[in-house]
């Protein structure tokens, strides 16, 4: 079920502060490291680059207008899958 509209989008509070600070410091291109994969991408994040933690490293995500409404975690996959052993053997043979 979708989230109630009256609650507004979910964002961790410190995200807003970090975004504002980044804007004020002259739009520095530096990556803002975040762990909050659960936060919604808001319009004020557009143009900033976030390093979204995937459990191992920070994946750089340049936020564009289309991403608004998605969650940060959607852009930093947390699982790696290299395919099955048997498939690889078959290809080599």
């Amino acid at each position: 079920m979708a989230r109630s509209v009256w609650k507004g989008p979910f964002v961790d509070g410190f995200m807003l502060k970090k975004a504002e600070a980044a804007h004020q410091s002259g739009r520095s291109k530096s990556v803002i490291k975040i762990w909050s994969r659960r936060s919604t991408i808001l319009p004020q994040f557009v143009g900033l680059t976030f390093g979204v933690y995937n459990g191992r490293k920070f994946i750089p995500v340049l936020v564009t207008e289309n991403m608004i409404g998605h969650k940060f975690g959607e852009f930093a996959p947390s699982r790696t899958y290299y395919g099955h052993q048997a498939d690889k053997k078959a290809k080599r043979a």
Binding site: T64, N66, M67, H70, G73, E74, F75, P77
Partner: peptide, 12 residues
């Protein structure tokens, strides 16, 4: 197509 171009999980 929008989801695929965006590079989000659903697109992948």
């Amino acid at each position: 197509k929008r989801l695929m171009d965006l590079g989000c999980y659903k697109g992948l």
